[in-house]
């Protein structure tokens, strides 16, 4: 259902140019059904699952993107900019376990980590342990707080 709704609206947004006709909506709906059938063929949640369509989750997600995520992105780029110019680095790969169950949550946290201060996700093993390349290590066995701040808490709240 998630894929269906998203692809329906993306098609309508991309094809909208001043006015909207009923044929357009029909084609959008048919294409969205086709796409969501193909997409849900191999995934676990299945076609009728309503997960991911909770408006409260979406509201929380928007608050996350425009709050801590935007702040982290800006800080990360300022940090990398300084390191590019001065050239002082202290790199290494560390691991930590954010205890995330779902793939969506893992993907969100991995992308957030990649775009935020001094860290880059290298690998995730089957138990959900993250291996993170850090450009400036502060300790050899860092806590969750050191690696990604409050992002892991946000990912747990958003996608378990």
């Amino acid at each position: 259902m998630f894929v269906l709704v998203i692809s329906f609206f993306v098609y309508l947004l991309l094809s909208w140019s001043g006015s909207m006709s009923i044929q357009e909506v029909t084609i959008a709906f048919l294409l969205a059904v086709a796409v969501s059938f193909v997409a849900s063929g191999s995934s676990r949640p299945g076609f009728w699952s309503m997960r991911g369509l909770d408006p409260r989750k979406w509201w929380l997600f928007f608050r996350y993107v425009f709050g801590p995520f935007a702040a982290g992105l800006t800080q990360a780029n300022w940090d990398v900019a300084k390191r590019v110019i001065t050239g002082e680095i202290n790199p290494g790969i560390v691991k930590f376990n954010p205890r995330l169950k779902t793939d969506a949550g893992r993907m969100m946290l991995a992308n957030s980590i990649t775009l935020t201060p001094g860290t880059l996700t290298v690998d995730i093993d089957d138990d959900g342990v993250f291996y993170v390349h850090s450009i400036n290590l502060t300790s050899l066995t860092p806590t969750e707080q050191d690696v990604c701040g409050t992002f892991a808490q946000w990912a747990r709240r958003l996608a378990g």
Binding site: I89, N90, P91, G92, I93, V94, K95, M107, A110, N111, T114, L120, T121, V122, D123, Y131, H133, L137, L140
Partner: peptide, 25 residues
């Protein structure tokens, strides 16, 4: 996501982080 795929592929292709303090992986 592309960057993550590249990092993972580079690691599995056997390229180690050259100056590295610690390598948990």
């Amino acid at each position: 996501t592309g960057a993550h795929a590249l990092a993972r592929a580079a690691y599995r292709a056997g390229i180690l982080p050259e100056p590295a303090v610690v390598d948990a992986l």
